[in-house]
């Protein structure tokens, strides 16, 4: 992996100092889902995602993104959807590196973030990692231009982890859903039971 491409200080330094190969990954951020880290990213051959894309993805999403195959998929698919994408990535990467932004919030406050072309690149990368797919899903059809990046590792689950389900996984026992997450403002006239219920509420606790 070509570490010489990035400077020793500046925007991506923090990311370089963390060992890219053994990061905290999405694990810490998806509390409780315990998704493990990928311990190696695919060896550098042609077609492997360039460091610029990896670092830019990490910068834009604030995540360690240690799933190497997912990174490769995102790169290949985004490049296929837009032939200008590789150049746009290289350009944005060097712009961010030379501006020395410490974090995404700084970048978004800067004039660079007003540039439509830059925003297009940011949007494509954000969507790929947050939604977990590239392209636009078609409705009622078997064919579209979408490509898979990740599912359980999609960053859109990060903010609601432990509060909402990642579909197909469970948060717990039958009827965990009757109570809202702690701290919710509950209306006074809330009714927890069905009117006209059978006497026993359904529960896995029925012995």
């Amino acid at each position: 992996m070509n570490k010489r491409a990035a400077s020793k200080t500046g925007a991506f330094a923090a990311i370089r100092r963390r060992d890219l190969l053994v990061g905290i990954g999405v694990v810490a951020l998806l509390a409780g889902s315990g998704i493990a880290l990928e311990t190696s990213i695919a060896a550098a051959d042609s077609g492997a995602p360039p460091v610029a894309f990896i670092q830019l993805s990490q910068f834009i999403t604030g995540a360690d993104l240690t799933d190497g195959p997912a990174m490769a998929r995102a790169w290949t698919q985004l490049s296929a959807l837009d032939t200008g994408f590789p150049a746009a990535v290289a350009h944005l990467h060097s712009a961010v590196a030379s501006a020395g932004f410490k974090a995404m919030a700084d970048f978004l406050a800067s004039p660079l973030a007003k540039d439509a072309a830059v925003l297009k690149t940011v949007s494509a990368i954000t969507a790929a990692w947050y939604l977990g797919y590239t392209g636009t899903p078609g409705s009622l059809t078997m064919t579209d231009n979408t490509g898979f990046v990740t599912y359980t590792g999609a960053l859109m689950w990060r903010p609601t982890a432990g509060l909402m389900v990642i579909p197909t996984y469970s948060l717990g026992a039958t009827n965990y859903w009757v109570d809202p997450p702690a701290g919710t403002a509950i209306p006074k006239n809330i009714k927890r039971d069905w009117t006209g219920s059978t006497p026993r509420a359904s529960s896995h606790k029925d012995a």
Partner: peptide
């Protein structure tokens, strides 16, 4: 021994 997500998510098959 944690299992990397890439072992579980192998990609698009549609």
């Amino acid at each position: 021994k944690p299992v990397p997500l890439s072992a579980y998510e192998t990609g698009d098959n549609h």
